[in-house]
């Protein structure tokens, strides 16, 4: 078995041998279907049954009347949402933060995983890995608190250092429009980049070591090994994660942003999620929140479908 020639690019293993009756095809895979059963049951019960609540978006939902009893209002909530003066501002803020986290945070997790993978000393590797995953366990409330201690103009550590070194004035990190997005992305990287490497490390762990040996026999440098062995072997995971990421493009860490928002940075910081929380959920306006959520879902779904098509065009398997 060990001498078997394993190719990294996926091979199409099998085409259906017989095109017999449909039932026979299903019967042949009865075990596979049986394996799926608990999962399918879960998805139907807990994911599809509640979906009928989405009609809330087209009703004036009142908890005491129930979903069926509440009055239909058509697209009223959507009109309110698209019609508000700040809609495009929110749209822009959400898109920009989504974009930054996709083009900055996402690649950083990959790069960090690759760098960690290059550490040869097993002990050191584990040690560093353990350190970088710790912040994931601190809640945003704590991280917002730590950010404040570092960045406030009233004796914040970083501002004290700036004042000490340059003699200049304190920088208003927390109450400025310019610093808001960098801060959010930095917090995100700090909290979750280490955690995000785990999935890639798991993929890297699956790479057949023989491939490296073969590459080295051919005299490939480390860069070339990275390019020709490591990356191809985690490519499909990267593609899948990227597609899924697009689906949640408009879902930003609500709690994180909410805690960092204030009067001064709101014009760049308010995103769909924080807006909905403030005006919708906190006030018990379920229909309106559902309508905004539905809009986000549709956008995410379109992005995912497009990305999946694109991936297939490039010969990747995609999600479905």
């Amino acid at each position: 078995m060990s001498t078997m020639n394993v190719s990294v690019t996926k091979t199409n293993v099998k085409t259906a041998t017989s095109r017999g009756s449909r039932f026979r095809g299903l019967w042949k895979y009865r075990w596979l279907y049986a394996f799926m059963l608990p999962g399918l049951l879960y998805f139907i019960l807990f994911r599809y049954v509640p979906l009928w609540g989405l009609i809330m978006a087209f009703k004036n939902y009142q908890p005491h009347l129930g979903l069926m009893g509440s009055e239909w209002v058509g697209f009223k909530h959507f009109e309110r949402f698209f019609g508000m003066p700040e809609f495009w501002q929110l749209f822009r803020n959400t898109m920009l933060l989504g974009l930054y986290s996709t083009v900055i945070y996402f690649p950083i997790t990959i790069i960090m995983a690759l760098l960690l993978n290059e550490i040869r000393n097993e002990m050191y590797k584990r040690f560093v890995q353990t350190l970088v995953y710790v912040p994931h366990f601190l809640s945003w409330v704590v991280i917002a608190g730590i950010s404040y201690v570092l960045l406030t103009t009233e004796g914040g550590l970083i501002n004290e250092a700036i004042k000490g070194m340059t003699g200049g004035a304190a920088v208003e990190f927390l109450t400025s429009t310019e610093w808001f997005r960098p801060l959010i992305i930095l917090q995100l990287i700090w909290k979750d980049a280490g955690w995000g490497t785990i999935i890639f490390l798991a993929a890297l762990a699956g790479v057949n070591t023989q491939l490296y040996e073969a590459a080295r026999m051919d005299g490939a440098s480390r860069i070339r090994q990275l390019w020709h062995v490591t990356l191809p072997s985690i490519r499909s995971v990267i593609v899948i994660l990227f597609i899924l990421r697009l689906g949640s493009f408009l879902d930003l860490g609500f709690e994180q942003i909410f805690l960092m928002l204030n009067a001064i940075n709101r014009e760049v910081g308010e995103v769909f999620d924080t807006y909905v929380y403030r005006v919708g959920l906190q006030q018990g306006q379920f229909s309106y929140s559902t309508a905004v959520g539905l809009f986000k879902s549709v956008v995410g779904f379109i992005l995912v479908i497009l990305a999946n098509k694109l991936a297939k065009l490039f010969g990747e398997e995609g999600i479905y």
Partner: peptide, 12 residues
């Protein structure tokens, strides 16, 4: 008064 009142937390 505190100059960072816009971003200060209740705890602080």
């Amino acid at each position: 008064m505190n100059q960072d009142f816009a971003s200060v937390s209740q705890a602080k």
